[in-house]
Design a protein around this nucleic acid. Sequence first.
DNA 1: GCGCATTGATGGCTGC
DNA 2: GCAGCCATCAATGCGC
Lengths: 87, 87, 87, 87
Amino acid sequence: MSEIGHNSDGAVQGDQIKSFIERIERLEEEKRETATDIKEVYAEAKSNGYDVKILRKIVARRRRDADEVAEEEAIFDLYLQSIGMLD
Amino acid sequence: MSEIGHNSDGAVQGDQIKSFIERIERLEEEKRETATDIKEVYAEAKSNGYDVKILRKIVARRRRDADEVAEEEAIFDLYLQSIGMLD
Amino acid sequence: MSEIGHNSDGAVQGDQIKSFIERIERLEEEKRETATDIKEVYAEAKSNGYDVKILRKIVARRRRDADEVAEEEAIFDLYLQSIGMLD
Amino acid sequence: MSEIGHNSDGAVQGDQIKSFIERIERLEEEKRETATDIKEVYAEAKSNGYDVKILRKIVARRRRDADEVAEEEAIFDLYLQSIGMLD
DNA sequence: GCGCATTGATGGCTGC
DNA sequence: GCAGCCATCAATGCGC
C-alpha cells in the first residue's frame, strides 16, 4: 500500500534529491575544512623554520611510496591470477 | 632554561618535523576518506535512479552561487569599511 | 611599414587564430594516431598470448620508476638549494 | 625447421615481450612529445594575445562537432546497409 | 553496462 | 600582483 510521492524511507521524492545534495555539500564542506587544516600545518611548520616546498616533497614522496606498495600487491595478485593461483 | 635540541613542546628537533609530517598525513588521509564518502553518496544516488552527471552540475552550480554570495558580502563589507561603517 | 590587420608573417588576424587552431588540431590528430598505434601493439601482444592487463602494469611501473628518478633529482636539487649549495 | 624458444621473427620469447614493451614505450614517448607540442602552440597563441581557455573551448567544441559528423555518417551508413544499399 | 584508465579542465600555490 | 606550475577533479573513452 505504497503512497505516491513517497519512497521507502518515508521521504517524498523532492526531499530525497535534496537530501543527497545536502549530504554531498556537507561532505564537501568537511573536505574544504580539512584542506584548510593542512595548509595551517604547513604554515606552522614554516614559522618553525621548515622549508614548505621540501616538506611537501617529502610528504608527496611518502605518499607515492605507500601507493607503490599497494600497486606492487595489485600487480602481484595479477600475476597469481594469470597463472591460476588466485581466484 | 631551554635545552638545545629541544623545542618548547619538549620534542627534539628530529621529532618535530616528524610530528608535522604525521599531522599532515593524518589530515590527508581524512581528506581522502571524505572524498570517498562523497563518491559513495553519488553512487547511492545513482542506484536510486538519479543521473550523477546532472547531480554534479547542480552541486557545482550551488557552490558557485554560494561563492558569489560570499563574494558579494565581502564587497559589501568593503563598501561599509570605505564609508567608515565597519571597523 | 606594418599594415593594419596583418601580422608579421603576412596572415590577417582572422587567419592567425585559424592557424593556431589548425596546428593544434593537426597535433591532436597525431596524438590520437599514436594512441591507436599503442592500442594495436597491445592487441598484437595479446594475440601472441600475453596478458594485456599485466603488460600495461609493467609499462606503467617502468614509467613510474623513470618518473621517480627524475623526482629524486628534483628533490635532491631542492635540498642542495636549501643549504645554499646550488644557485 | 623452427626452433623451440624462438618465434617467427627470430627473437627468443624473452626478447619478444621486451620488444613489445619497447615499442609501446617508444610510442608513449612520441605521444608525450606531441602533447608537449600542443602545449607550446597554446603558449605561443597566448603570447600573441589569445585567451588559452577560450581557445581550448573552441578546439573542444570543434572536436565534438567533428565527432558528431562522424557519428552521423556512421548512422547514415547503417541506414544504407539496412536497406541493402551498402555492403 | 560498469569500472578503470586516461585526458582535459580548473583552481590553488609559488616564485618572479 | 600575476603568470606559470602543479595537484586535484570531472569527463570521456576503453576494455572486460
